[in-house]
Computed example of a mutant assay.
Amino acid sequence: MSRVLPPTEYYASLPKSITGAGAILHDEHGRFLLVRPNYRSDTWEIPGGGLEHGEYPWQAVCREVKEELDLELTPGRLLALDWVPPQPDGRPALANFLFDGGYITQDDADKRLSLQTDELSEWRLAGPEQWNKLMAPHMARRLHACADALRTKSTAYLHHGWDPANPAH
């Protein structure tokens, strides 16, 4: 017979995961705003980042976009939730929430965005044909799913960028 663990021991025994939140800012041509982090010069990302202790994903995306781009954001609906399993390099599992960050034009971005240069080196509006070249494969798949969610007014549930009901891998 197994013994019942006290709550603190039980919670300490559970798997660990981290949570992130990102914003999909988009234009009339289906391009999404991408940012290039200083710490990863080989790939682009969307604005966003990890949740702080006690923070909700919606709050985190607002905070991160303000910190990274000096842009006040009121996110729209959830476009995708992507579950990334633990990685071989030791990263724990990740739940990433992607919100509709709203409409932005090139002119708006030129006038309104101010990069946090400690973390980001540049930004650009990039279309679906560029995502596979600029981003890690799972992140590009995630953006394609967000484009579909915007078009169909749905929400995507993903496993490392793949639709688990229709995996293409």
Rank of each mutant, 00 (worst) to 15 (best):
M1D: 05
S2V: 08
V4P: 04
L5R: 04
P6G: 03
P7L: 15
T8F: 13
T8E: 14
E9M: 14
E9Q: 15
Y10A: 13
Y11P: 00
Y11D: 07
S13E: 02
S13H: 03
S13R: 07
S13M: 04
L14A: 01
L14Q: 03
K16E: 05
K16I: 03
K16N: 05
S17T: 02
I18G: 15
I18S: 15
I18V: 15
A23M: 11
H26V: 01
D27W: 00
D27Q: 03
E28F: 01
E28W: 01
H29Q: 15
H29N: 14
L34G: 02
P37V: 08
N38Y: 04
N38S: 12
R40W: 01
E45P: 04
P47Q: 07
G48D: 02
G49K: 03
G50P: 09
E52W: 08
E52C: 11
Y56K: 15
Q59C: 11
C62W: 00
R63N: 07
E67N: 13
E67R: 15
T74M: 12
P75W: 04
L79Q: 06
A80T: 05
D82N: 15
W83F: 14
W83P: 00
V84I: 15
P88K: 15
G90R: 09
G90S: 08
A93L: 11
A95E: 04
A95W: 08
N96D: 09
F97I: 01
F97C: 11
F97Q: 02
F99T: 04
D100K: 08
D100H: 06
G101L: 12
Y103K: 13
Y103F: 14
I104E: 00
I104G: 02
D107C: 05
A109Y: 02
D110F: 05
D110V: 08
D110M: 11
K111P: 00
L113H: 07
L113S: 01
Q116S: 11
Q116H: 15
T117Q: 12
D118A: 14
D118T: 10
L120S: 10
W123T: 06
W123F: 09
W123N: 03
W123S: 03
R124N: 09
P128V: 05
P128G: 13
H138R: 11
M139P: 00
R141P: 00
R142A: 03
L143Y: 09
L143T: 00
C146S: 03
C146K: 04
C146H: 01
D148A: 15
A149M: 07
A149K: 09
L150S: 10
K153Q: 14
K153V: 07
T155P: 10
T155N: 11
A156H: 02
H159F: 06
H160K: 09
P164E: 01
A165R: 12
A165S: 12
N166V: 05
N166L: 12
P167A: 11
P167G: 09
P167Y: 02
H169F: 13
